[in-house]
Design a binder for these strands. Sequence first.
DNA 1: TTGTACGCGTTATCAT
DNA 2: ATGATAACGCGTACAA
Lengths: 353, 353
Amino acid sequence: MALKELASASNKKAKRVTVHDVARVAGVAIGTVSRVVNGAPSVTEEVRSRVLNAISELGWTPNVAAQGMRGVSARMIGFIFSDIRNPLYSAMVKGAEDALTEHGYMLVVASSNSSPEREVALVELFTRRRADGLLFTVEEESDAGMLQAIRDARFPVVLIERELALPIDTVGADHFNGTRQAAEYLLSLGHRRIALISGGKTNRVGRDRLGGFLQAHQRAGVPVDRDLLRLDSFASEYGFRETQVLLGRERRPTAIISSGMHLLSGVLEAVRMKGLDIPGDISLITSNDTELARLATPAVSVIRYDPYALGREAALQLLRRIARETPQDPIRIEIPTEFVLRQSCSPPRMIVK
Amino acid sequence: MALKELASASNKKAKRVTVHDVARVAGVAIGTVSRVVNGAPSVTEEVRSRVLNAISELGWTPNVAAQGMRGVSARMIGFIFSDIRNPLYSAMVKGAEDALTEHGYMLVVASSNSSPEREVALVELFTRRRADGLLFTVEEESDAGMLQAIRDARFPVVLIERELALPIDTVGADHFNGTRQAAEYLLSLGHRRIALISGGKTNRVGRDRLGGFLQAHQRAGVPVDRDLLRLDSFASEYGFRETQVLLGRERRPTAIISSGMHLLSGVLEAVRMKGLDIPGDISLITSNDTELARLATPAVSVIRYDPYALGREAALQLLRRIARETPQDPIRIEIPTEFVLRQSCSPPRMIVK
DNA sequence: TTGTACGCGTTATCAT
DNA sequence: ATGATAACGCGTACAA
């Protein structure tokens, strides 16, 4: 029985019904059918209902490919990021998808696996597939091939958490002020040796975080020890290794800001291995908010923002750009960050001058 | 013809390049161009290279809409799940995407938000958009509308972590043996009152877990207290609430198996609030593996499987089905589970007879 | 081996 | 208000 059903399903010839069939059944010309479905004003109510009846009777829906030939958009948006398993990206994707769905668009996800070459191939793919727009978290902001691919693209692009030397809309979290606020708080507690562990030195996120960190120190008149800046990776292992190194120093930091989804687990592990107490021996602030940060003992203070909202705003801006409902000049949208104080911070045990 | 060319040449609008342009530049007919790009055997090497030169010179790529009209597939696959923010789904999506990309397919993600009505709308959307196939984690296995929508779909479907009363390929983790193994381990430690907190009572995942749990008890000759079965939700809050209730009982369980990505945080919180020691007062096993499980104190034993591999296998099976490279009978693929022992289990302090 | 002409299903432009 | 028909760009059967 199972076999039979499967066979009949795949053998289903399904002669496709077209406007011609609808026109025939409704007793009108195909032009009239098109006018009805596309809401042209000049159609008699009587003809209109005859056509609609025929349509539902035959279960007709317009052939997307044929519409495409007539210039009707495929209503498809691409989203390029490194890897959707990063919870930030999956939340952004959900936010974008929800906004796009409301406007009848599909979302195609495309992982670059952090390869600029693959990014170029993907942009070209979306160009060939006639995408209506692209959400893009670029890997390397200065990669020449990628820049050229974006210039050659036939659709609007909205950058997510990145910025380029091109006039393109951008949406990103306010990492500058988030990190500034975190650093200011630690400085106000009396910390004078604060380490910053982060990645993305060459993109907007990393730059803004470092900028906020430096500004807080500058305002407080506290010099920054460059040796406490560890800005080479977002990976958990990097957080682990660099924390070990930092805590092994003679004049070790009294606080750490780890800016990256996956860094916290590495940092925590290194602190534990060292047998140090949080916040007694070392204060800790991380970004972004995660279950681990909330449920660790003690709970870890975080800089957080809403990646869902970020994805949603980016998609909405892209839709505005597609509909030409936005000024020609590129728009820059910032998603606010919030500093959430938990139990991982206290004044330093010994003030290091 | 010459007049027409002149007219379009003077027209400022950027004209799209077509096979005709390529043919003109290469000095051949359009049929030849088509034969070259589609790898027809009967083309002189000289003509072939002339055409290829013209193509790269003009930067021509076939219009997908026009190809679609000729029956060429859009090479697009849909993936319907409840919410991509569930890390299991984002890992599956990555696995599926990687497999599909290797074969030149795009992946369209579609969240159902757990609504069967939305699932139906999405299946119909993919039908209209002429998707080549669908990966589908159905919300309600017995929803009539959804079943009909799948029957009406014109493309093959592969179910993920679900099974239906339809002859369709399925790919799922071996939750039955995973849960059985976990329960057997706890029983071997001497536990006689083991609670099971899980969701999905009416889908494959929930059924298999309960089945494995019951079989372990049956084999060990240990009766199951139905009051210890809490099978109504995967939500963190549910884990919290039910754990509170269970631990508040006079004859409380000596061990808990929580089967669901988000349950652990709720369970842990309830155990902490109760001031109980893990594993001294209560043993704990959860599914699936997470950062929280690894980094909690003590680290929590888990039943784990590889959702990336699951998504990948599902996509590969879908591709085989599309290519008709698989027997007509539905295939059932099981992804193995693994029991990882950590520090959250010990013999019960007091044996409850 | 290569060229020509038709058809895919829709939308839009003319007529009527 | 409605009908007839051209055009979109490609693939392919058939003709040369």
